[in-house]
Simulated scan of single mutants.
Amino acid sequence: MSEAVGQYIRRGIMSKARTRAQIEDFFTGFELIKPGVVPVHRWRPDDQALLMEDSMVSMYGGLAVEPCPLGDTTTVPRSRRRRRADHRRSPGRVG
Score class of each variant (00 low, 15 high):
34 K>T: 07
34 K>C: 02
34 K>I: 00
34 K>P: 15
35 P>R: 14
35 P>M: 01
36 G>N: 13
36 G>E: 01
37 V>D: 02
37 V>Y: 13
37 V>W: 10
39 P>T: 13
39 P>H: 14
40 V>K: 06
40 V>E: 06
41 H>I: 01
42 R>P: 10
42 R>H: 03
42 R>C: 05
44 R>G: 06
46 D>H: 15
46 D>P: 12
47 D>N: 04
47 D>R: 15
48 Q>L: 08
48 Q>T: 13
48 Q>P: 09
51 L>E: 14
51 L>V: 02
51 L>A: 13
53 E>L: 09
53 E>D: 12
54 D>E: 09
54 D>A: 09
54 D>L: 07
54 D>M: 11
54 D>T: 08
54 D>V: 13
55 S>T: 14
56 M>F: 12
58 S>R: 03
59 M>H: 07
60 Y>Q: 03
60 Y>H: 11
60 Y>M: 06
61 G>T: 02
61 G>Y: 11
61 G>A: 02
64 A>Q: 10
66 E>I: 14
67 P>S: 04
67 P>D: 10
68 C>A: 15
68 C>L: 12
69 P>Y: 08
69 P>D: 11
69 P>S: 09
70 L>I: 06
70 L>P: 00
70 L>R: 08
72 D>E: 07
72 D>W: 02
73 T>H: 09
74 T>P: 00
75 T>F: 07
75 T>D: 04
76 V>P: 00
76 V>W: 00
77 P>A: 08
77 P>G: 07
77 P>M: 01
78 R>D: 08
78 R>C: 02
